Computed example of a mutant assay.
Amino acid sequence: MLTLIQGADLYAPTAQGKMDVLLAGSKVIDIQPEIKLDGNTLVKVIDAREHILAPGFVDSLVHITGGGGEAGFASRTPEMELTDATLNGITTVVGALGTDSSSRTLSNLIAKAKGLKEQGLNVFCHTGSYHLPAKTLTGSITDDLMYIEEFIGVGEVAISDHRSSQPTALQLAQLAAQAKVAGMLSGKKGTVSIHVGPQETYLSLLHEVSKCSDINLSAFYPTHMNRNKGLLDAGIDFCRGGGHIDFTASTTEYDLAHGEYAAAQALAYCLAQGVDPNRLTISSDGHASLPIFDDTLNLVGLEVGKEASLHQAFVQAVQEFDVAIEHALMAITTNPSQVLGLKKGTIKVGSDADLVLLDKQTLAPIHVWSNGLHMVENSNAIVKGLFE
């Protein structure tokens, strides 16, 4: 079966104008202003004249197995379901552990990733967690990245946070070196995902690593950079030094009221400051534990991250903060793909058929394809997880 998407406003993610896009199997095989097929060809035609066709969203940080709750065992968050991603236009997720690497394990992470892949989603993972020395599945970072298909990097390693293991510059430099070499040997990027907490040390440790070693800032991928204006400004300096930064879409009303920027607002702020739009990304932090701490670091509340926040941040960026559609799309498609070394996030002849068809007015996902598999049709999930 071929699928012909007709007359969409194509963003690949840059604007390409009105185009027809032809899918066959798991690939995009043709893009033309008008594609005509033989009348005898078996083809499913999608009228997309009132829609925007974009790459499937790439969510670079999702706790697919749930997170360990900071309020005890009963507060451990649930696992992600397939439609948590697909109904929100997400076709690629990157899973990671966080604070809890005891009751949440790497073996469970990989098993969950493989299960989601069997259902049609693109899934990658990081080895390690918040703490150093890094926990691994095989006994070494090198072997994890070389021999386990889903592992593409390390993280999310915590800095500037009272929940971190308080790593030194030497420890981080050694970790990044291991990840880089493992990536070279396995054909992967070997990026180190960095959880940045609210402490005013910000990204100083990463700058120290770059000064005392051969490790560049680009080896690190700091997330949660929209916690406050001080951290956001530090992120702008980090980008100008050659790095990339990530904003977290999942948040709480408490945090927003106490200085956190919404991800869409942070994206707009950085663009207004002249930051290269290729260096900015947004992730959902879906199914993460979102603890709320007061000024003395006492836990006063706990919420759960949602994958839906990624799409919501995209819409908010475009409709409330006047971010260009292509810049908002880059932050959730090509940019995270390039940082992590994934061949995702673009629409071109020969690319994987990871696509989302958006209503032109509301930007709501109407159709979603992952590797050519039609996952969402007319805003309804037609492929669901086994237990959904």
Rank of each mutant, 00 (worst) to 15 (best):
I5S: 01
Q6K: 13
L10Y: 09
L10P: 12
K27L: 15
I29S: 09
I29G: 10
I29D: 11
I31H: 08
T41K: 11
I46T: 09
D59Q: 05
V62E: 08
G68Q: 05
G68W: 01
E70Y: 02
F73W: 07
A85F: 06
L87V: 08
L87A: 13
D100G: 15
S101F: 06
I110P: 00
L116V: 05
L116I: 06
E118I: 10
G128Y: 00
Y130P: 07
P133Q: 02
A134Y: 01
E149V: 04
G153C: 06
H162N: 09
S164F: 00
Q171R: 00
L172A: 00
A182L: 00
L185D: 02
H195T: 06
V196A: 02
G197F: 01
Y202Q: 13
C212H: 12
C212G: 11
N216V: 09
A219I: 10
F220Y: 10
T223C: 13
H224S: 08
N226V: 12
K229G: 14
D233C: 12
Y254V: 12
D255P: 01
E260L: 10
A268R: 03
I282P: 00
A288P: 07
A288D: 05
L290V: 02
D294W: 03
L302W: 00
Q316S: 13
V323Q: 08
H327V: 07
K343H: 14
T346D: 12
V349Y: 06
V356A: 05
L358K: 09
P365N: 12
S370A: 15
S370I: 14
L373E: 13
H374M: 11
H374Q: 13
I382P: 08
